[in-house]
């Protein structure tokens, strides 16, 4: 069983070696620009940048497809909704469906925008281990510490949560098998019955998770962890010229997309 969120492709491309903070900033800025800009020309610039990033990442296309697949229905839904409900002079009508060139154009634009967004986001998560991502986010969130937001502790929490997702999935599977062996059926019945049949699965999962959390906390204390204490890292974040170059390139791409 494999978690699909924040999946990482181990590689050694230029993008893999970039600082997660630079990548986070560049990708976030590009995402905002994608939503601000509403012309095909701008979209084309950003799409070109996304494709270039994909080529530089050295990640096989099938990995992108895997990240993209769960969102396929969202893209399809966006497209259909736009085609059917968009305004404009219809060139074809059938019942409540009115197809217009304007509607088709809008649908294509919005779906493409979503695809580019997913592509850009996937380049980030596929080339950056989740631990580096959380470290980057913690660093970027540092100003919040003035407001007493414990950013480092939050980052460690996220890291631990991600670390335990596969463990919990295995546990969930074990519990469901155990319940099935005792006659539980998770597939039959309406939504209500199915939801109810999950209760005997979730209760033990929660109980086990709390026990795990207790033991993990103890093991962390045994290794001298103290919340709020100053920590160092095995791999501290180090930004270099390549990261500055990435930010400059992102700024140029964004500006180009806004101006064309």
């Amino acid at each position: 069983m494999k978690a699909t969120i924040a999946q990482y492709y181990a590689g050694d491309s230029l993008l893999h070696r970039l600082d997660p903070r630079a990548k986070l900033v560049a990708v976030s800025a590009l995402a905002v620009a994608l939503f601000v800009r509403d012309s095909f020309a701008g979209l084309a610039v950003y799409a070109a940048a996304a494709v270039l990033a994909y080529l530089l990442s050295g990640v096989p296309l099938v990995w992108f497809w895997r990240a993209f697949r769960p969102l396929l229905w969202l893209v399809a839904l966006t497209f259909v909704a736009q085609v059917v409900f968009a305004p404009g002079e219809p060139f074809f009508s059938f019942g409540f469906i009115h197809l217009s060139w304007r509607g088709l154009e809008l649908a294509a634009f919005l779906s493409l925008r979503l695809v580019v967004l997913v592509l850009v986001g996937s380049v980030l998560t596929l080339t950056t281990p989740s631990m580096a991502l959380t470290d980057g986010l913690a660093w970027l969130g540092r100003p919040l510490r003035r407001l007493r937001v414990p950013t480092d502790e939050l980052a460690l929490m996220v890291t631990i949560a991600l670390r335990f997702i596969p463990t919990l999935l295995v546990e969930l599977d074990t519990i469901m098998r155990a319940q099935r062996a005792r006659g539980a059926d998770f597939r039959r019945g309406g939504l209500r019955e199915r939801t109810r049949s999950l209760v005997p699965v979730l209760v033990p999962l929660f109980v086990l998770s709390f026990r795990r959390a207790d033991e993990l906390a103890l093991a962390m204390e045994a290794r001298c962890y103290r919340p709020g204490a100053v920590r160092t890292r095995l791999h501290p974040l180090r930004a270099g010229w390549a990261d500055a170059a990435l930010l400059v390139a992102a700024a140029i791409v964004i500006a180009a997309g806004l101006l064309v």
Partner: peptide, 27 residues
């Protein structure tokens, strides 16, 4: 299973030393 904090082996081995704020090179 309930003692491993980090997402990979080397980061987990480093965890205690990180908590004691050793310099990165020493870790």
């Amino acid at each position: 299973e309930n003692q491993l904090v980090a997402q990979c082996v080397e980061d987990d081995v480093a965890f205690g030393l990180e908590n004691l704020a050793w310099p990165a090179a020493d870790i």
